[in-house]
Amino acid sequence: MNNNTSLIWNIVLSIAVAVLFFLHFSGNKSEAGAGSSDGGVVAGRRTVYVQVDSLLTNYDFFKDTKKALENKHFQLENELNTKGRSLQNEVAFFQQKAQTMTPDQARSTEAQLMKKQQDLVAYRDQAMAGLQQEEAGKNEELYKQIRAYIEKYNKENNYEYVLGYSLGGGILFADKSLDVTQKIIEGLNKTYKESDAGKASADSTAKK
C-alpha cells in the first residue's frame, strides 16, 4: 500500500488546483493597499502569494494528520499480513491432511477456507475504503481551515488576491517580496495549537 504518499498527493492536488485562494474584495480598492507594508505590498500591488509546498510541510495540522493516517495504514497492513499468513497456514495444513479426509470432510473444509478468503478480501476492501474516506475528510478539513484563516487574514490586509504558488503550477514567477507564506503558517499553527485537536495532539506527544 502506498501509505506514505497517498495523503500527501491528495492534499497537494486539492490545494494546488482548487485552493488558488482567489479572494476578491471590491470595496475601498484605492485605500486598501496604500497603507499596508505586510509582504512588501505597496499601492497598486494588493496581490500576495503562499507557497503551497512550504505551507504543507510546516502546518502542524497537516503533519499530525499525515502521521496519524500513516499509522493507521501501517496497522492495517500488519493486520492483513497476519490474517493472510494465518489463512495460508490453514490452507497448507489442509493440503497435508486432505488425503486422510473423507470427500465430504475435504469439500466442507475447502468451502470454509474459501469463505475465509472471501471474508478477508471483503474486510481488506472495506477497511481501505474507510481509510480513503477518512483521508478525503481530512483533506476537506485542511482546505477549510486554510481557507478560513486566509479570509480572516485578509480582513486585516484587504488584498485583492491571495494566490497559491507551487512548482509546476500556473504561476510562472512570483516576487519574493509578495510572499506571505511564513505569516500564514505562523497564524495557522497558532490557531491549531489553541484548538481542541491541537491540544489533544500536544498532550499525546507529551505522554510519549
Rank of each mutant, 00 (worst) to 15 (best):
G39V: 04
A18M: 06
S14T: 11
L13D: 14
V41I: 14
F62K: 03
G40Q: 04
G33E: 10
D60P: 15
K66G: 03
F62V: 09
N58M: 04
N10S: 10
V17E: 12
L13F: 11
S14E: 15
V12R: 15
T47D: 00
G27T: 06
D53R: 06
L7Y: 14
S26N: 09
L55C: 00
S14F: 08
G44F: 06
Q51N: 13
K67M: 05
W9E: 14
D64Q: 13
I15E: 00
H24M: 07
L20G: 05
E31Q: 12
D60G: 12
G40D: 02
E31H: 11
A68R: 13
A68D: 03
K29G: 01
S30M: 10
A16G: 10
E31L: 13
N28H: 13
L55D: 00
V12C: 09
H24W: 09
G33T: 15
E31G: 07
L20W: 06
A18T: 08
F22L: 11
R45N: 11
A16T: 11
F22G: 09
T47M: 05
F62S: 02
A18E: 05
D64P: 04
F62Y: 07
S14Q: 13
L7P: 03
V52I: 08
A34F: 12
E31K: 14
G39K: 09
A16D: 04
V17C: 08
I8G: 02
F22A: 07
A34T: 11
K63I: 12
